[in-house]
Structures are given as C-alpha cells and as structure tokens.
Computed example of a mutant assay.
Amino acid sequence: MSYVPLNISHLKAIVFDLDNTLVTSDMDFTWLREQLGCPLSSDLLSYVEQLECQQAREKAHSVILEHELHDARTSQPMPGCLSLLDFIQRKRLLTAVITRNCAEATQQKIAHNQLNIPRIITREHFPPKPSPDSLLALAQEWQLQRHQILYVGDFLYDLQAAFNADMPSCLVTHGKKVPFSNQASLVVEHLHDLEEIITKQLV
C-alpha cells in the first residue's frame, strides 16, 4: 500500500476519525479483547460479527458498548481540535466524522465535547474502516471528486480506508513514532499543525 498525493489547494472537505484524532480515548482494547476472547491478531469488530452464536454476539456488542460509553463520558478534545473545526467552518469546507464506534457512543462524544460537526458516520451505517464505503458515500453525497476530500486519522485503518477510496490521508502522530507513517499523504504531530499547513496553502 502507498498513498494518494495531496494537493491542499484542491481541498473542499476534511473528514475525521474520532478517537485519538478529534477527542481523547482511553479504551483498554487489551482488556476488552480478553473479555471477549478475541485474539490479538484479529480485528475486534470482525471477530464479534463472525461469532456463530447470536447470544454471544449480542453479549459481545453489549460489552463493547459499555466500554465505549464510559470512554465517551471521560473524553476531551485533542490539542488543536476546536481551533481546526472553527477554521473549517470559516473556510466553508465540508466536514464529517467517520468512526468505527457505535452511533450512541459517538453522539455522546460529539455532544460531550461540543464538536460542531453535522455529518456523523458510524459502524451501523457502513462497513467499518478500512472499508472505503463511507468515504465513497460522502464523495457522492457532496458531489466532490475524491482528491478534494482529505481523511484525517491516527491509525493504520484510517490510512487504508483513504487509500482504498483513492483519497489523500493525513496521519496525526501526537509526537510518537508510528511504523505506518509512510502510508500517509501528509504527517503532522498535532491538529494545529494541520491547520497551519492548510492556512498557508489554501486560498
């Protein structure tokens, strides 16, 4: 996998992942996997969906929801988040959130952190990332070319989803070394760095 080149002057929309991109997340996925019996090598959501017993699937979804709702109540905006969203509004760019979280926890996080984002896509709406379906649906909904949409996230699934949708991506590292940073169109440490870069290049 590589990445789709980014031309900031062409941007009409910036779409975000939610957890540890726009807001903090303290989800203990190791403990959650242990509770559900999910191997470290398996994608958690895919593992749950493949459980043959419906009762086991429902119980697993309930456990995940409990973790997500607790995480929503304790979340806070990431550095530069609110300023960047204000900037996007001033520039009249389109924006949305695409997350692997459930709708209930996502709406609670958006409200708790007072994020002004009108379009929210969760795992109930489309197959979860790295599937490109949600990004492609937004492009069609907004009547934009794929290169006009930038997807911003902090994890490999975000970069893969953007690449699979033939869209540029931005990786937020929070100052950490990330082994998959070479798969992003743009790499920044924090959201305010992204705002600074766009400010200089977006007319």
Rank of each mutant, 00 (worst) to 15 (best):
residue 11 L to Y: 07
residue 121 I to D: 02
residue 103 A to W: 13
residue 64 I to W: 10
residue 176 K to W: 07
residue 191 L to Q: 14
residue 22 L to E: 07
residue 203 V to N: 09
residue 96 A to W: 06
residue 88 I to R: 10
residue 60 A to H: 12
residue 13 A to E: 02
residue 146 R to C: 15
residue 174 H to E: 07
residue 34 E to K: 05
residue 100 R to W: 03
residue 180 F to I: 13
residue 130 P to C: 10
residue 58 E to T: 08
residue 34 E to P: 01
residue 134 S to N: 11
residue 178 V to F: 01
residue 73 R to E: 15
residue 100 R to G: 02
residue 189 E to L: 01
residue 168 P to W: 10
residue 61 H to D: 14
residue 188 V to Y: 12
residue 156 L to M: 04
residue 201 Q to A: 13
residue 178 V to C: 03
residue 125 H to Q: 13
residue 170 C to H: 06
residue 80 G to Y: 12
residue 70 H to C: 03
residue 136 L to N: 15
residue 14 I to A: 02
residue 47 Y to C: 01
residue 67 H to F: 10
residue 105 A to F: 05
residue 136 L to W: 14
residue 137 A to F: 13
residue 173 T to C: 06
residue 78 M to Y: 07
residue 28 D to G: 03
residue 36 L to F: 05
residue 141 E to P: 09
residue 21 T to R: 02
residue 151 Y to K: 08
residue 64 I to K: 15
residue 27 M to L: 14
residue 155 F to I: 09
residue 136 L to E: 15
residue 92 R to Y: 11
residue 22 L to P: 01
residue 68 E to Y: 06
residue 52 E to H: 11
residue 137 A to Y: 14
residue 3 Y to W: 11
residue 199 T to L: 13
residue 118 P to L: 08
residue 10 H to T: 11
residue 196 E to I: 00
residue 93 L to S: 11
residue 103 A to R: 15
residue 171 L to K: 07
residue 158 D to E: 08
residue 55 Q to A: 12
residue 161 A to P: 07
residue 53 C to K: 14
residue 160 Q to F: 12
residue 133 D to V: 11
residue 57 R to W: 09
residue 186 L to V: 09
residue 197 I to E: 03
residue 178 V to K: 04
residue 113 N to L: 08
residue 177 K to T: 15
residue 44 L to Y: 03
residue 65 L to Q: 07
residue 102 C to M: 10
residue 8 I to W: 14
residue 135 L to D: 01
residue 51 L to Y: 04
residue 109 K to A: 00
residue 48 V to R: 03
residue 69 L to V: 10
residue 42 S to M: 09
residue 20 N to V: 07
residue 52 E to A: 00
residue 200 K to T: 03
residue 119 R to Q: 01
residue 89 Q to M: 03
residue 171 L to M: 09
residue 174 H to L: 01
residue 200 K to H: 06
residue 195 E to V: 03
residue 111 A to P: 06
residue 30 T to C: 00
residue 162 A to M: 11
residue 190 H to P: 15
residue 177 K to H: 01
residue 7 N to T: 13
residue 149 I to D: 14
residue 14 I to L: 13
residue 180 F to Q: 14
residue 160 Q to P: 14
residue 58 E to L: 13
residue 32 L to V: 12
residue 185 S to D: 09
residue 107 Q to I: 04
residue 18 L to Y: 02
residue 47 Y to E: 00
residue 109 K to L: 04
residue 106 T to P: 06
residue 29 F to D: 09
residue 111 A to N: 02
residue 88 I to E: 12
residue 186 L to P: 00
residue 152 V to M: 08
residue 100 R to N: 09
residue 201 Q to F: 02
residue 31 W to K: 11
residue 200 K to M: 07
residue 135 L to C: 06
residue 181 S to W: 07
residue 33 R to V: 13
residue 177 K to N: 00
residue 87 F to H: 09
residue 21 T to N: 06
residue 192 H to E: 15
residue 68 E to D: 04
residue 179 P to E: 06
residue 176 K to V: 02
